[in-house]
Amino acid sequence: MQPGASSVPVLDLGGILLISIQGELPDDAAVDLRTDVTLAVSETGARGVIIDISGLDMVDSFLARVLAEVAASARLLAAQAVLVGMRPSVAITLVELGLALPGLETSRTVIEAASRFGVEIRDRGDQPAARGTDRTPT
């Protein structure tokens, strides 16, 4: 892993940043992600940040804190962050853990979150994983 650069790509969808976290994130990569997103928001002047976590099968308090911090930093730069695609098992676990993340905006899918910012993404219907299901896509 390169120091200072997170393994998670930050995509610019025209005023909206899309961060899709695929698979498990080591702690240092999560911290890098926070830096990368904040920089990207300030460089692009994005008004929205969509964080897609449909690929995550676990979110612990460390990652929850990083996600909350990404949202808080984005807000300081006048961008709204939306957390998207959390799986049921992850949601149940976070609630039991006592982390309901009240400050974070959430949406079911990337498409829905983008439409909140007036960006239309056409559903090609070939990405079941992006729906945040606990079931393995076939």
């Binding site: 676990m58 612990d60 049921p88 992850v90 149940i92 676990t93």
Partner: peptide, 15 residues
């Protein structure tokens, strides 16, 4: 759900 709970607890405690 149980897997996720146990893995999350493991992550917290290991940290």
């Amino acid at each position: 759900v149980q897997q996720t709970k146990l893995v999350t607890a493991a992550s917290e405690l290991a940290r």
